[in-house]
Design a binder for these strands. Structure first.
Ligand SMILES: [Mn+2]
Ligand SMILES: [Mn+2]
Ligand SMILES: [Zn+2]
Ligand SMILES: [Zn+2]
Lengths: 139, 139
DNA sequence: ATCCTAGCTTAGACTGTGTCTAAACAAAGA
DNA sequence: TCTTTGTTTAGACACAGTCTAAGCTAGGAT
């Protein structure tokens, strides 16, 4: 049913009712929810669910590498269940709309050796900002 | 003296003593300070300087386009006086060290037309994460 | 079946980061 | 000088997220 739940189960991590609801909420139609948005929606299915559990669970899923944590503006972090598909983000500066996008090559290839300062590279992410079609016409 | 101050002056924006101290602090040897770090250091030169003025001034410099605001983790924003030189960032996941880096091409070229969802692109930024030389040996 | 233990969940207090407000202050122009 | 407009200030406030201490499971051992 939930692909994220099956990925999580592989880490032999206990799938409690709370964790299941949180994972399934996160994976729903719209992605890139904030923790508070996950709570809001998950509470509809499990009214006694607590804020602390949502934050704890999201942090654990990030630590397991099955969810991405996006800190793209200075506001709430956003959580992305799509951690098993390499992708980047395109954000509308007008309305905040966020789309997944795919680049034609690995951004790491665009960083020459003499710009790496002896670092080992683990991951790269690209953020594109602009205006969505709606915000171009009605600014 | 301070290149940032001369850039700011072009916007016919009043350079008050407070704003000068903030701009010069931001432009000092180490870049990518948080607002609190700017305050800490600026207060050494102007003890009566207030926290509100630091936040106000940094936001104004960002709005003028002369300072970049970086929200790369979920913690404090960082302020980058180097807004007139296109560059990206390489961050150590061990110690938080942040280096400026330059890519061999414009990241906008890596995003094909059919991945733009009708957006107009305004700016692109790449964040590379990994381990710095120190953190590789002493993890 | 019962007990034990480790892990999970909870409410609410707490912290860090940033914004807002209202009043005092400063500068520039008439 | 007087007026007007913009700037600075202290502190209250708001938001996002973490921590704590207590209670609650679930599963294993006996
Ligand atoms: Mn995504
Ligand atoms: Mn920089
Ligand atoms: Zn938009
Ligand atoms: Zn390091």
């Amino acid at each position: 049913m939930s692909d994220l739940v099956t990925r999580l189960r592989r880490h032999n991590w206990r799938i409690t009712p709370q964790r299941r609801v949180i994972a399934e909420t996160l994976e729903g139609s719209h992605v890139h929810f904030t923790a508070e948005q996950v709570l809001e929606r998950a509470v509809e299915r499990m009214p006694e669910l607590s804020r602390a559990t949502v934050y704890n669970t999201l942090n654990e899923m990030v630590a397991l590498g099955e969810v991405l944590e996006l800190a793209l503006d200075g506001r709430s972090k956003r959580y992305d269940p799509n951690a098993d598909h390499e992708h980047h983000h395109l954000i509308c500066e007008g309305c905040g709309l966020m789309k997944d996008v795919h680049t034609v090559a690995d951004p790491a290839d665009w960083l020459p050796g003499d710009e790496r300062h002896g670092f080992t590279l683990a991951r790269s992410s690209v953020t594109y900002r602009g205006l969505c079609p709606d915000c171009q016409t009605a600014p």
